[in-house]
Amino acid sequence: TFTSYQLEELEKVFQKTHYPDVYAREQLAMRTDLTEARVQVWFQNRRA
């Protein structure tokens, strides 16, 4: 599960791009204290 802060950050990036590159995902992962893999999976699920 994600915190409301994490979801907010993820959604913010999703609004800009549905396909963030690895750099964007790593920045987001650091900001949200998630792994890059978790961020990647979240985007895959969000796009589905």
Rank of each mutant, 00 (worst) to 15 (best):
T1F: 11
T1C: 11
T1H: 12
T1G: 13
F2H: 03
F2D: 02
F2P: 04
T3Q: 06
T3M: 05
T3C: 06
T3A: 06
S4T: 12
S4C: 13
S4G: 08
Y5E: 08
Y5L: 09
Y5M: 08
Y5Q: 09
Y5A: 09
Q6Y: 01
Q6P: 01
L7W: 10
L7C: 07
E8I: 10
E8R: 10
L10R: 00
L10Y: 00
L10T: 00
L10V: 03
E11I: 13
E11D: 04
E11S: 03
E11G: 02
E11Y: 06
E11P: 01
K12F: 06
V13C: 08
V13K: 03
V13I: 09
V13N: 02
F14Q: 01
F14H: 01
Q15W: 06
Q15S: 13
K16L: 12
T17Q: 07
T17R: 04
T17G: 05
T17Y: 07
H18P: 15
H18Y: 05
H18L: 05
H18A: 12
Y19P: 15
Y19H: 08
P20K: 06
P20I: 05
P20V: 03
P20S: 01
D21M: 02
D21F: 15
D21A: 04
V22H: 13
V22Q: 15
V22W: 11
V22S: 12
V22A: 14
Y23V: 14
Y23A: 12
Y23E: 11
Y23L: 13
A24I: 12
R25S: 04
R25N: 03
E26D: 06
E26Y: 13
E26P: 02
E26R: 13
E26M: 14
E26W: 12
Q27E: 14
Q27M: 12
Q27P: 15
Q27D: 13
Q27F: 13
L28F: 09
L28W: 00
L28R: 13
A29D: 15
A29Y: 04
M30R: 15
M30G: 11
R31Y: 06
R31M: 09
R31E: 05
T32D: 01
T32R: 00
T32P: 00
D33L: 10
D33Y: 07
L34C: 05
L34G: 01
T35V: 04
T35K: 04
T35I: 04
E36N: 05
E36W: 06
E36D: 08
E36M: 15
A37D: 12
A37I: 11
A37H: 11
A37M: 08
A37Q: 10
A37E: 13
A37V: 08
R38Y: 09
R38I: 15
R38E: 15
R38L: 14
V39P: 01
V39N: 01
V39G: 01
V39T: 02
Q40T: 09
Q40V: 09
Q40M: 14
Q40C: 13
Q40N: 14
V41L: 14
V41A: 14
V41I: 14
V41K: 14
W42S: 15
W42Y: 04
F43C: 03
F43P: 02
Q44Y: 11
Q44T: 08
Q44N: 11
Q44H: 09
N45M: 13
N45R: 13
R46E: 04
R46I: 02
R46Q: 05
R46F: 01
R46L: 02
R47W: 04
A48I: 11
A48K: 11
